[in-house]
Write a protein that binds this DNA or RNA. Sequence first.
DNA 1: CCATCCTTTCAGTAACTACTGAAAGGATAC
DNA 2: GTATCCTTTCAGTAGTTACTGAAAGGATGG
Lengths: 191, 191
Amino acid sequence: MLLAAPAPTAVDPAQQLRTAQDLFIGRWGEMGQTWGINRTMAEIHALLYIVAQPQCTDDVMERLHISRGNASMSLRALCDWGIIRRMHKRGDRKEYFESLSDVWEMFSIIAAERKRREMDPVLETIKQCQRMIDEKSIGKSAANQLDVQLTRQRLMGMEEFVEVTNKIFQQFIGNAKSGLTRVVKVLLRAF
Amino acid sequence: MLLAAPAPTAVDPAQQLRTAQDLFIGRWGEMGQTWGINRTMAEIHALLYIVAQPQCTDDVMERLHISRGNASMSLRALCDWGIIRRMHKRGDRKEYFESLSDVWEMFSIIAAERKRREMDPVLETIKQCQRMIDEKSIGKSAANQLDVQLTRQRLMGMEEFVEVTNKIFQQFIGNAKSGLTRVVKVLLRAF
DNA sequence: CCATCCTTTCAGTAACTACTGAAAGGATAC
DNA sequence: GTATCCTTTCAGTAGTTACTGAAAGGATGG
């Protein structure tokens, strides 16, 4: 009897790897989408991250079934964002792309961007609203009106929340380079 | 000389209040959008939060210039979500809506939902991928292939990140304000 | 200088999401 | 019962975002 052959597992390891990677890519794309990130961009990033080896534009196009134009634009956007990098191989004209390898670094880049583009403006707006309806602006008696007071309270509540959230983001962003692993350790120990 | 009149401020306090509220509503809508939340829904919620008084469907329609259908569906979705509530006034057939007043409670509801719908599935998928390419599934020699090892490492990195993020969310969901404040304290103490 | 190989751009289109308005569906009052 | 008042639903449409493919734009090598 020949038992030599690697048993009828019926699965080709290379195929199995690819399937697992595709599963990850698909899920990552879905998640990105619900957080306001273009699905294709999230998928490209997931691909570069999970295969952990530089891919050229054609690799990406084939694997995700997207057009050259789409690939080019999305790759460029990811580079601008800073979570993937361009690279070259000697004697090969093509450009290759690879993902940052540290998940924490990646997310701290994303967090920094989001803070700057969304949270900071909200905080600024809240403060502006507060100024618009303070005593100086609308007079003492008007400021005592019920509806003004209610809105004031709500603005304060929201301000406090945004401030605290900002601080957490700040911690992540600030500590990214100086070893986010420390942040991780601290949090894991504490909770 | 008549200095009695409340000085030519040129601003009507009621108008000023409304303008400030509108500013907040607009900004909140924009932010919601970039986080994957329908702009109108975010605006409705912002309106109910900031005026801090129950509003009926027509109030919402007029203030945000949206159709009855849109208002009805969006209000229902916000109710389902749990961040606004329906209420009634005696002797008035209309339904009124009001926002939760505690920002922390609101966001912990949102966080719980996001965790359940997006983060948990991602974690599950990561684990599934790991199982698909472990030694048992693809054999020892195949498991030692470079590409398999690389993907394994990446899955581990991502798993760690999602686990820690999950813990922060958990902290927030369980204890809303005090939970997040604690995260901030822990981080501040450590750095 | 031209040929080759690769990348970028963008007008046109496809796909998707959000919104409207009118009709149908309750509920309450009389 | 039916009149009134309000809410919900949903087919149709508007508006937005994402994608394609082909043409133009480099860069490198001979």
